[in-house]
Design a protein around this nucleic acid. Structure first.
Lengths: 260, 260
DNA sequence: CAGTGGTCTAGACCACTGC
DNA sequence: CAGTGGTCTAGACCACTGT
């Protein structure tokens, strides 16, 4: 009976640790298609038999692959080649005013267009003192209205977002309500006289914190994007900062750069 | 004698695995400042003594922290709270023509401005058939000139880049030389009549492949950005695709979005 | 129930660091 | 040299899955 392990062996005398050699061989099998998305890897017991090593050695190899985001272990079932989730493409014009005309907030409008079922939950709105990092971007100190929420697609959480707006702008307005109404808070800002002129986005990537991994139900080996967007009105005033954490395997970010 | 472990204990009867509890406690110490950047964590032997557990248990805890990018183990020395490397900020106008006037390629010009010592090595230029993924973006099939190189700052590799240009544009020109001359290949493209109009950038993040981790000397627990930039000339023709892999902890990407 | 992965123990030998 | 982390063995018991 044929298996991806046929003919594979490790060299205990090699400089490269045995568990790394085992991981290398399984990784190669995934790279050249002997193992495909969704396939089950050989079980720990099979790897132990095949390579003649202790269980911890094969577990170290499997853990390495999991940390690289290549596999996913399912308790009681097996270890599988990870499937890539559907990807959300963020276009650079996604906050353009024309996309707000239909009365939908950005996330809902885009998702329905992509054929996925969007959901928003864990909505919280409150008023606090601005965190220093955000205050710098808002060029504002003192009270801010803070709106946080979690977005899901087809039941899978993909993104959390926290918006900060100066209280003097947002206090007592629909922006401070859990449901800000059609078009989202950007539509409300414009109604309040803050016509939006431009946005800046600052993108970083890192492994999720424990809290982020929990709230986004993240698999090991998947990083997050952190995207901090600042909205400026036509007076050049920063009127909102939105701090977003996104499961990186669910996103492609598209931008346009000028050449002049 | 006082230590970050003072008063800390684990509950073996808890639902949460002991090694996760140990990781939680060390993570908390890093979050609230009891352990700071560069500090040494308690040694494995100290953790074993303090918690009364086996070595594999404390190693599992430490490995979890390393995979989260929080710590770095140094053989024979100890486990340390990871220091954040200096960050390179990429501005959205970094390919604007005005930045090419001084005759420096983008990377060198920026780095010197930031006070770091840039280096470029592993330069390779050859001609091959265009990979499908790149061909789609170039809207071109057939031969391409491929330029790949590695960039370092202060001796630390931070980025690899591979440029693809249609051979009919680049063949036999300085673009196909290892050293393309002042201003880099974008200056050469414009001299050849391909005035650059705009760029698109597509940003993703994931854990590095084994090969990427090696060439960029990456620590465990640090993801990479993949940035695929396409350059268009004033005829709307895609004239270059640049595929870049960057150590994510060394970069912040800045972009501007229009509101209209 | 058998098979799977999750956790944990109690050792062993090794390689690297710094004194 | 003592102290550190890196690798590996050979078990144990548990929880989850599917038949």
């Amino acid at each position: 009976m044929s298996s991806v392990l046929d003919g594979l062996a490790v060299d205990p005398a090699s400089d490269r640790a045995v568990f790394r050699q085992i991981a290398d061989q399984l990784r190669s099998a995934m790279e050249d298609g002997r193992l495909r998305e969704g396939d089950r890897l050989p079980s720990e017991a099979q790897l132990i038999d095949h390579y003649g090593v202790a269980r911890m050695t094969v577990r170290s190899a499997l853990q390495l692959l999991e940390a690289e985001g290549l596999t996913r272990a399912e308790h009681g079932r097996g270890v599988y080649v990870r499937k890539k989730p559907p990807v959300r493409r963020l276009a650079s014009d996604r906050f353009a005013r024309r996309h707000r005309k239909e009365g939908k907030a950005a996330f809902l409008a885009e998702s329905e267009q992509a054929g996925a079922i969007p959901d928003v939950d864990l909505i919280q709105v409150n008023e606090t003192t601005v965190p220093p990092e955000i205050g710098e971007r808002l060029n504002h100190s003192g009270p801010v209205v803070v709106r946080s929420r979690r977005y899901s697609l087809d039941g899978t959480p993909v993104e959390t977002a926290t918006s900060y707006l100066p209280a003097e702008i947002a206090h007592g307005t629909p922006i401070a309500d859990p449901n800000p109404g059609p078009g989202g808070i950007y539509a409300r800002l414009e109604e309040l006289g803050h016509t939006l002129e431009r946005f800046t986005e600052e993108v970083t990537a890192r492994m999720p914190t424990e809290a982020e991994a929990r709230i986004l139900a993240m698999a090991p080996g998947v990083p997050v994007f952190r995207l901090v967007r600042t909205a400026f009105d036509t007076d050049g005033r920063a009127v909102e900062v939105c701090d977003t954490i996104m499961s990186a395997d669910a996103y492609v970010l598209n931008y346009e750069l000028p050449a002049h």
